[in-house]
């Protein structure tokens, strides 16, 4: 009875495990890169944003992606989180045009942006953006990393995934072949090539570098409080580890007379 049950149990676990490993998606594994903020135990626990990379990533996003994608939940002031100064932020905001108040005739107006404004969107609404993009909607980028499984690695790979379609595969007009997109046919034309931007800090703008930087910035946009969260986390987890040790010591002490009595009895 015992053996039989054990064998049955083991069989079931193995079966479920094998089924799990078989998976359901046939995309190639993502490209590998090192993130300052995660991927290894040390980076997950203590890693903060690589601010230089995030700032370069903002440059890529601002110069390239923002012509199609919005980032409605971000405000210009949030850029302080990647180390931009108040002056830089004011200048970036002022270079954008955002909707203003109604004028005295009741007509809509526009004005230069302020640090407190949300990021200006490239299109007034979803319909307009579909009209401009072959019917496809470039999704808002505020949460794009969190909204995809393994988001940073996915975006890093996706941006470098534009390759010649395998022989025999016909890609319709307005669609592009991408190794890492589900179904492999995406409405987004390859947004980045080598030297799509010129980095002010002299970093070589290879496709991989640009992809890495913009993915770092997008991770920041999805998780603007990550640095603060981990910083606080190390102290709080440390505190409870200490408490666990202390309470255990107290418990042992309190129970020592019970255990001692037990042992005395035994002798």
């Amino acid at each position: 009875m015992r053996r039989l049950a054990a064998a049955a149990a083991l069989g079931m676990v193995l079966l479920a495990g094998a089924a799990y490993a078989a998976g359901e998606e046939e995309l190639p594994p993502f490209l590998k890169t090192n993130w300052s903020f995660g991927g290894t135990f040390a980076a997950d626990a203590f890693g903060t944003y690589d601010r230089a990379s995030a700032q370069r990533g903002f440059q890529v996003w601002n110069e390239v992606c923002s012509s199609c994608h919005s980032m409605k939940l971000m405000s210009y002031r949030n850029l302080a989180g990647i180390g931009l100064t108040a002056g830089q932020i004011r200048a970036i905001a002022a270079s954008k045009t955002v909707p203003g108040d109604l004028n005295d005739q009741g007509e809509p107006t526009t004005r230069p942006g302020l640090p407190s404004d949300h990021f200006a969107s490239p299109y007034p609404n979803e319909k307009a953006s579909r009209a401009a993009n072959n019917g496809a909607y470039p999704p808002d980028h505020s949460l794009i990393v969190n909204a995809r499984v393994n988001g940073a690695n996915y975006i890093y790979s996706l941006l470098q995934g534009y390759v010649e379609p395998p022989p025999g595969v016909k890609v319709p007009d307005g669609l592009y072949y991408n190794k890492w997109f589900v179904g492999h046919q995406i409405h987004m034309p390859a947004p980045l090539q080598d030297n799509s931007v010129t980095y002010a800090d002299g970093t070589k703008a290879t496709l991989a570098q640009e992809s890495h930087d913009v993915a770092t910035f997008l991770y920041f946009a999805s998780n603007p409080h990550m640095d603060e969260r981990k910083h606080l986390g190390v102290r709080i987890v440390g505190f409870f580890a200490l408490m666990a040790g202390l309470t255990y010591a107290v418990k042992k002490h309190v129970w020592s007379d019970v255990h001692k009595a037990t042992h005395d009895e035994e002798r």
Partner: peptide, 10 residues
């Protein structure tokens, strides 16, 4: 709380 905090913060 140790387990809970590890999940929440990391």
């Amino acid at each position: 709380f140790l387990v809970f905090a590890t999940i929440v913060f990391f």
